[in-house]
Amino acid sequence: MADAVRLYTRYIGASLRAQMQYRASFIMNALGHLAITAGEFLSLAALFGRFGNIDGWTLPEVALFYGLVSCAFALCEGVARGFDDFSRTIRNGDFDRLLVRPRSTLLQVAGQELQLLRVGRFLQGLAVLIWSAATLGIAWTLPRILLVLGAVLGGVCLFYGLFVLQATLCFWTVQSLEVMNTLTYGGVETAQFPVTVYRAWFRNIFIYVVPLACVTYFPALAILDRADALGSPTWFQWLAPLVGVGFMALAPQVWHFGVRHYRSTGS
């Protein structure tokens, strides 16, 4: 285990040194990301300018959801790049290379790249989060700070699990991956609002199937001290981010099933 961690850090070091070779284009890319996400948030603000609220939630409250999910997703996109980009690894035949090395395939894919680029999106999410907290006048007690960190980390784990599932799908097809985007990017879009604004069947997908609500909606309720229209108990709201960790723990089983399929069909 310690050996795996050391190798992972070596991989990440190599990836960072490689990215530093393209500094100018990196800065340009990060700024580009910052611009588009900032623009999206301003567009959201424009809607609140027209409508005032959504089901009784104001812009600064929704901004808390937005900030949590943006930070989590940006961090995850940074570390899970190898899985996000796995269809290319399969198409190039580079997965064969990973199989002839004496290390777990999961570790090797995870170590493929740490993408710094997502720092733009992360900073934007963080700014929105801070603006929201300041506007709402949230009292920052230690438990609340820990809950915010827990929600973001739980979110990173959840998205990481989704990226591993998406990569696993590549063992069968590299053509219909866009469907997985509905769960990753679509999940981000969905989680920017309280799940109660959606219809019940859709809401339930993001509570029970892909439990994104557990890393945004439920902890946000506890942070805001609001009662849940769905009736969840407070203790659950505090522990909900752990569900994200559990979700990630399931992903390796599916992955190994995919690797077995690959080794028997070679495609």
Partner: peptide, 29 residues
């Protein structure tokens, strides 16, 4: 074509999310 089919499913999903959000906005104001 498989990618195209996946694309359609995705677009329907995205459209669905957005419409539910606007539905909520319209009933709130």
């Amino acid at each position: 074509r498989e990618a195209a089919l996946a694309g359609v499913v995705t677009q329907l999903f995205w459209g669905g999310i957005r419409i539910m959000i606007y539905e909520a906005f319209y009933r709130s104001s």
